[in-house]
Design a protein around this nucleic acid. Structure first.
Length: 345
DNA sequence: AAAGATGATTAGTC
DNA sequence: GACTAATCATCTTT
């Protein structure tokens, strides 16, 4: 009951400024008197200012009164409930989406490549797997291997810093929005569910940005990997000694230049290359020799002579470092004319 | 820079 | 799976 007079009073104060203005309008005399007019305008401005001030004060007071009203929580609860129902009926269906298959693919790949997941170990494991895929990496390729690892860990580092940045930004933004909503929930009905929904929307937006990061990281890894795996890109000639060992074997087995698996392994060991490299070498050599025997004649003669010299010095001195491991025709010149025999063709 | 040499890859055969 | 023949990509020589 005592609320009413106060309200009336404050209302009265609000109106108190108006009679003066109304009076002016009614007289119509102000237009003729310059001095009076100036003063009147000053009065009006003054009154407007007071009105504004008073209105603001009033608005604040009303807001405060509303905030403190004992029925407010109940009212907001009801409003929230109604809002929840309408919002849910509008977009309730599309709420729970399944995990994005593409994102899962990217995640799996990053994990497999050792970019995501535990430190270091994964990376070198992936590099080792890549090395195994090429058919084995020799000791002389370890430099390239470590280069690969270095680049991979560089990618890894960039990925993690970026990811961290995104996560931090996401968290900051989330807390900011949550604070804002909590602040606003004092003046408008906001349910906790609504806040939750807003947070999930933010997370979804940020995860789509994250996906772009993951995608570009995957691309970088793929490029690095393909460059590392494509050995042709960084082909190195075998060193002179290795070539000599291989040629010695080839020309001393000219009638049947097909080293057995054991012989290949031994040659690989001697030349510090892989068995498949030995196989490649013999494959290339056979076909190229066969294609142009004339061109290789000189080379054939040279190695044949050397083998012969080695053989004689072996018999003379008992040991020789450079002798071929399994000469097939010790004592005589192996035929410099390799007939493309039964095996070939 | 062009030509030749060489190691690796690929399709096809046995 | 080993091999041939053709080819590619790079290295080396001219």
């Amino acid at each position: 009951m005592d609320e009413q007079p106060r309200l009336m009073h404050s209302h009265g104060v609000g109106m108190a400024g108006h009679p003066g203005l109304a009076q002016h309008m009614q007289d119509g005399t102000a237009g003729t008197d310059g001095e009076g007019r100036k003063q009147d305008i000053g009065d009006i401005l003054q009154q407007i200012m007071t009105i504004t001030d008073q209105s603001l004060d009033e608005a604040q007071a009303r807001k405060h009164a509303l905030n403190c009203h004992r029925m407010k929580p109940a009212l907001f609860n009801v409003l929230c409930e109604i809002k929840e129902k309408t919002v849910l009926s509008i977009r309730g269906a599309q709420e729970e989406e399944p995990p994005d298959p593409q994102l899962m693919r990217l995640d799996n790949m990053l994990l497999a490549e050792g970019v995501a997941g535990p430190e270091k170990g994964g990376g070198s494991a992936a590099a080792a797997a890549a090395a195994a895929a090429t058919g084995g990496i020799g000791a002389d390729n370890s430099a390239e291997h470590s280069d690969y690892r270095a680049k991979l860990s560089q990618i890894r580092q960039i990925y993690h810093t970026e990811l961290e940045k995104y996560e931090q930004a996401c968290n900051e933004f989330t807390t900011h929005v949550m604070n804002l909503l909590r602040e606003q929930s004092r003046t408008r009905p906001i349910s906790p569910k609504e806040i939750e929904r807003m947070v999930s929307i933010i997370h979804r937006k940020f995860s789509s940005i994250q996906m772009q990061l993951k995608q570009s990281t995957c691309e970088a890894v793929m490029i690095l990997r393909s460059r590392f795996l494509d050995a042709r890109r960084k082909r190195r000639n075998f060193n002179k000694q290795a070539t000599e060992i291989l040629n010695e074997y080839f020309y001393s087995h000219l009638s049947n230049p097909y080293p057995s698996e054991e012989a290949k392994e031994e040659l690989a060991k001697k030349c510090a290359i892989t068995v498949s490299q030995v196989s490649n070498w013999f494959g290339n050599k056979r076909i190229r020799y066969k294609k142009n025997i004339g061109k290789f004649q000189e080379e054939a003669n040279m190695y044949a002579a050397r083998t012969a010299v080695n053989a004689t010095s072996v018999s003379a001195h008992g040991s020789q470092a450079n002798s071929p491991s399994t000469p097939n025709s010790a004592g005589g010149y192996p035929s410099p004319c390799y007939q493309p025999d039964r095996r070939i063709q």
